[in-house]
Amino acid sequence: MNLKGKRVLITGGSSGIGLAIADAMLVEGAKVVISGRRSDALDAALDRLRRNGESVAAIAADVGTDEGRARTLAFALEKLGGLDVLVNNAGGVRAGRLEDTTEDEIRSMIEVDLVAPIMLTRAALPELRASKDAIVVNIASGIALVAAPFYSTYAGVKAGLAKFSESLRRELKGEGVHVMTVYPGATETPMMSSNRAGPELGFMREPAEAVAAATIAGIEEGAFEVIRGGDARAKMIALNRDDPAALDQRFADLKLALSNAVRDHSAL
């Protein structure tokens, strides 16, 4: 897909990966609407994005709610006059032992990370079909491919999002709407600011701009998926498939240190 002139909606676009993708798409000549929950963050994001063009607008809304999704989509269609690209990027995380995670935190992750992209995609499909050259980009997580301890709910919902993408891609094949899944690894974003795990625990962080560049390349190439993390991630995926007990032991050796490093990781 050539992004020049394409009409794009990006949820969670006020910071991190979503903001970096918006920036990169504007450079490619797309017209962009971003959404987020905080008006101040959106204002700052617009100041940055408008350096690369004026074809950008923002709406403060919570896509984790029915009303927020409806407002977000209506605003995007009003500003753009249609829709060619939907990037489901908004997300939240709460790490820690399952029994120490509250019901509200669990439900919040399910609603924002899984229910929201499914329902927003469903609502946007008529406009995407009308485009005849459209794409849905779902931002999952590397943890959906290799699940780490203390992220059980987050891994579950992100894996669910990945399988939603795979199924929908096959459902829509030949109908003018492609679906691509992105699996970022640890990324330097506000969402990761409360996570103290470093490279010694397998959290090799990269800039959000690198994930955005790979996402744009994937869109242009018609890729099915974009997996970040290089050879190290590929080896972990292979080990998880071929000898999961070995990976279980590797995590067991790191469990105490990892538990202490991620116990405050929260962005909901």
Rank of each mutant, 00 (worst) to 15 (best):
V33E: 04
I34T: 05
I34P: 02
G36N: 07
G36Q: 09
S39F: 07
D40Y: 03
D43M: 02
L46Q: 01
D47N: 08
D47T: 08
R48L: 09
R48K: 14
R50W: 03
R50K: 14
R50H: 04
R51N: 07
R51D: 10
N52E: 13
N52T: 05
V56M: 14
A58S: 12
I59L: 14
D62H: 02
V63W: 01
V63T: 12
G64P: 00
D66C: 00
E67C: 01
E67Q: 12
G68A: 04
R69H: 04
R69L: 03
A70D: 11
A70Q: 14
A70H: 12
R71S: 07
R71Y: 02
T72M: 08
F75G: 09
F75E: 13
F75W: 11
L77A: 13
L77F: 06
K79W: 04
L80N: 13
L80P: 11
L80C: 12
G81T: 06
G82V: 05
G82D: 09
L83K: 01
L83R: 00
D84H: 13
D84W: 11
V87T: 07
N88I: 07
N88C: 10
N89S: 08
A90P: 04
A90D: 08
G91V: 00
G91F: 03
G91T: 00
G92F: 01
V93I: 11
A95K: 10
G96R: 11
R97V: 10
R97W: 11
L98C: 11
L98M: 13
E103S: 09
E103L: 14
E103W: 12
D104A: 14
D104Q: 14
D104Y: 04
D104I: 04
E105R: 06
E105N: 08
E105Q: 15
R107K: 13
R107H: 14
S108G: 14
S108N: 14
M109W: 09
E111Y: 15
V115L: 15
P117W: 00
P117N: 05
P117T: 01
I118C: 14
R122Y: 09
A123W: 03
A124V: 00
A124L: 02
L125G: 09
